[in-house]
């Protein structure tokens, strides 16, 4: 999977690049609008990540030009939260999703995965860790073959944990992904929710998959042998 990242802040771009590479994507970075335009015009990317505010040409203008040239790869815009005018302009320009700055790498990866999934338009899309299986189209979960009934929030939480598996997900990233709001002492809420999820996924007699990583957050993986 080849991804284009257009971001004028070199350090931010480097971090995104590293995060994506670690997740198994190959990454090209453009530092401004014209460079992004040139790269996207000459290479086929599976997805593109565009900062809205860039010197030269802003992200929205570049994507609009690319769409006119027939480049159809899905785009995630990085923008200010709540700037709805930006959001609408971005989506009209052919953006497929947007992410508010400052964002978490885990969230970016989750969005990217969802975007690529939609793009592929597979009749089946499943994630699997050990004997836990998630059907993203039917939005159902199965543990050891048995269907587990989950609320929307629990499903979103499980999806995030599985997307980053076996790496841990921070509590703040969980709050952001599941509620899209900040809570004072909100980490308690995450604990409560993860415990709800635990009682449903790690039922007695099964190998526990959800682990607490102290100070980091929660991780979903098979226990180390």
């Amino acid at each position: 999977m080849r991804i284009l990242v257009a971001e004028d802040e070199a350090k931010v771009a480097a971090h995104i690049g590293r995060g994506l590479t670690e997740a198994g994507y190959s990454v090209d970075v453009a530092a401004d609008g014209p460079e992004a335009l040139w790269l996207a015009g000459n290479n086929a990317y599976d997805a593109m990540i565009f900062d809205v505010m860039m010197p030269g040409q802003d992200g929205i203008t570049v994507v609009r030009q690319l769409r006119r040239k027939g480049v159809r790869s899905p785009v995630i815009f990085l923008t200010a939260r709540h700037e709805l005018a930006d959001r609408v302009a971005g989506l009209d320009a052919g953006g497929d999703d947007y992410l508010a700055k400052p964002f978490s790498m885990i969230e970016l990866l989750a969005r990217l995965r969802a975007l690529l999934r939609r793009q592929r338009n597979d009749p089946v899309d499943r994630m699997r860790v050990a004997d836990l299986e998630l059907d993203l189209l039917e939005r159902t979960a199965r543990r050891a073959g048995a269907v587990v009934a989950l609320t929307n929030r629990e499903f979103a939480l499980l999806e995030l944990l599985m997307t980053s598996s076996p790496k841990p997900v921070s509590k703040t990233a969980i709050i952001e992904h599941v509620w899209d709001q900040h809570f004072d002492s909100g980490t308690n809420v995450v604990n409560v929710y993860v415990n709800y999820l635990r009682t449903k996924i790690d039922r007695p007699g099964l190998v526990p998959l959800i682990h607490t990583v102290r100070g980091v957050g929660f991780a979903l993986h098979e226990p180390a042998p």
Binding site: R18, P102, F103, S104, R214, G215
Partner: peptide, 25 residues
């Protein structure tokens, strides 16, 4: 802020757990 978040997230495994959590929060 974006940089800080990305860096703290990346380094979370290497710094003292309680500190990492508090920093992220």
């Amino acid at each position: 802020l974006t940089l800080l978040r990305l860096q703290v997230e990346e380094a979370a495994g290497r710094i003292e757990p309680a500190l990492a959590e508090s920093l992220q929060d």
